[in-house]
Simulated assay, not measured.
Amino acid sequence: MAKKAVRKRQPEAAADEGERQQGTLALDRIAALLGLYVVKDMEADEAAVKLGNVGFSDKEIAALIGVTAGYVRLARFRAKKKGGRKPRKKAA
């Protein structure tokens, strides 16, 4: 009988995974720094809305601007309520 070939995990694949994780962490830090730079002179409510629109999560925004995640959710809710949706015109 012929022996079956045993596949071994490539050590390079493990190294690539580690490099990929480090690259992701570096990109996260760069995004956080850029977010802080953009909102440095804004009030917390306005900063929360802007960062939320870009795609940061409530927890990430809270950590960046020094408030709680609940405050961020409330600020975003107030902004949505204040802006409001305009009523649609009815078709004639």
Rank of each mutant, 00 (worst) to 15 (best):
D41G: 07
K80V: 04
L74A: 02
I65K: 03
D16Q: 15
T68V: 00
A32N: 10
R20S: 14
K59H: 08
A75N: 01
D16E: 15
Q22W: 13
D45P: 02
D41L: 09
L74K: 00
A62T: 00
G52K: 01
A91C: 08
G70E: 05
V72A: 00
S57G: 06
A32K: 09
R85V: 09
E46T: 08
V67L: 01
F77M: 08
K3L: 14
R9E: 11
G35H: 05
K8W: 12
R9C: 07
G66M: 03
A48F: 05
D28G: 12
L27D: 11
R76D: 01
V49S: 00
V72P: 03
A15G: 10
A69I: 05
F77G: 02
L36C: 12
R20G: 10
A79P: 01
Q21C: 12
I65E: 02
A75Y: 00
L36S: 10
L33Y: 14
A2E: 13
S57H: 03
K80F: 03
K8C: 10
D58T: 02
K81D: 01
A47C: 06
E46Y: 06
E19C: 11
F77R: 08
V54L: 09
A26K: 15
A48E: 02
L25R: 14
K50Y: 10
R73W: 04
G52C: 00
A5T: 15
A15F: 13
R76H: 07
K59C: 06
G35C: 06
Q10E: 15
R20E: 12
G18P: 05
G55L: 07
F77L: 07
M42E: 09
V72H: 04
A62H: 04
I65Y: 00
G70I: 05
L27C: 10
K90E: 10
R20P: 08
L25D: 15
R9I: 11
K40Y: 08
T24P: 07
Q10P: 12
I61C: 04
S57C: 00
R76Y: 05
M1E: 11
G84T: 03
E43C: 08
N53R: 09
Q22K: 15
R76P: 00
G83V: 08
N53Q: 09
G70H: 02
R78L: 01
M42K: 06
R78F: 00
L25Y: 14
D45I: 00
D41Y: 10
R73N: 04
K81V: 01
R85C: 08
V6T: 13
V38I: 11
T68H: 02
T24N: 13
E17A: 15
K59Q: 10
K8D: 10
V49D: 01
R29V: 13
P11I: 07
P11W: 07
A5L: 14
A13W: 11
V38Y: 11
A69H: 03
Q10V: 13
K89E: 06
A44L: 07
L51V: 02
Y37C: 10
R73Y: 03
A91R: 12
M1P: 07
E12D: 15
A2F: 12
D16H: 14
I30H: 12
K4Q: 13
V54H: 06
